[in-house]
Design a protein around this nucleic acid. Structure first.
Length: 203
DNA sequence: ACCGGGATGTTCT
DNA sequence: GAACATCCCGGTG
């Protein structure tokens, strides 16, 4: 029987991983594994948000009840309700006082796929399960009840683990999706050639 | 393939 | 009252 190179038992990413610039953390999250209540998937697309220079960030105009998590310590889950229908999940980065987060935008499903189909209703193909920020939350079972969760605890129902697959050497940065402000910033990071992206890269 | 519009409700001005 | 870090469906070419 085949055995993995057993280097490290997959453990959740620790606080110091997230306690860096959002622009370092975001590309480093590519190829990590997001584990949720319904299953898990490999992260293939993220977007960076934050800083006083980013008009597309929820935190741009200062802290509000909704966004206070972005101003807090790193390593926590920030879940917000989008368009009155959908949940989207972020990971808070950078030290307290520095508001930033990484939006998790697309996954390659790994485990719990049948449960993901059940949770996603009309999805017909694997590439439809987690190819968008609200799709992946629905597929994995992430909603507002999990807002503020500490991702670095081994027992957390949502965590991000490193299974030994490195971030892609050719990680590509492109413009973010769905914004009316800050749309010029190339802060979307993707695993090139993944069929699970929310949108294809326009060449 | 591309494009347009509807669903649906919280958040902040 | 407007805006919104989305998704899905139905039209047309």
């Amino acid at each position: 029987m085949k055995q993995q190179p057993a280097e490290t038992e997959p453990t959740p990413l620790n606080r110091s991983f997230f306690d860096r610039s959002v622009h370092e953390v975001a590309p480093d999250l590519l190829n990590k594994v997001l584990v949720g209540p319904n299953g898990s998937g490999r992260i293939v697309e993220v977007e960076a948000y934050g800083g006083s220079d980013d008009p597309g960030s929820h935190a741009f105009r200062g802290p509000t009840p909704r966004t206070e998590l972005m101003f807090g310590p790193p390593g926590f889950l920030y879940v917000y309700f989008s368009y009155g229908m959908h949940w989207c999940a972020n990971v808070v980065t950078e030290p307290s006082g520095s508001a930033s987060a990484v939006l998790l935008r697309a996954l390659e499903p790994l485990s719990g796929v049948s449960g993901m189909y059940a949770a996603r209703g009309r999805a017909k193909r694997d590439v439809d399960l987690c190819s968008g920020p609200a799709k992946l939350c629905a597929a994995l079972g992430i909603d507002g009840d999990l807002n503020g969760l500490d991702l670095t605890q081994g027992s957390a129902v949502v965590r991000i683990v490193d299974d030994g697959v490195l971030p892609p050497a050719d990680a590509t940065a492109t413009t973010r999706i769905g914004l009316s402000k800050g749309a010029d910033l190339a802060w979307r990071y993707v695993v090139l050639n993944s069929p699970h992206l929310s949108r294809k890269i326009h060449p």
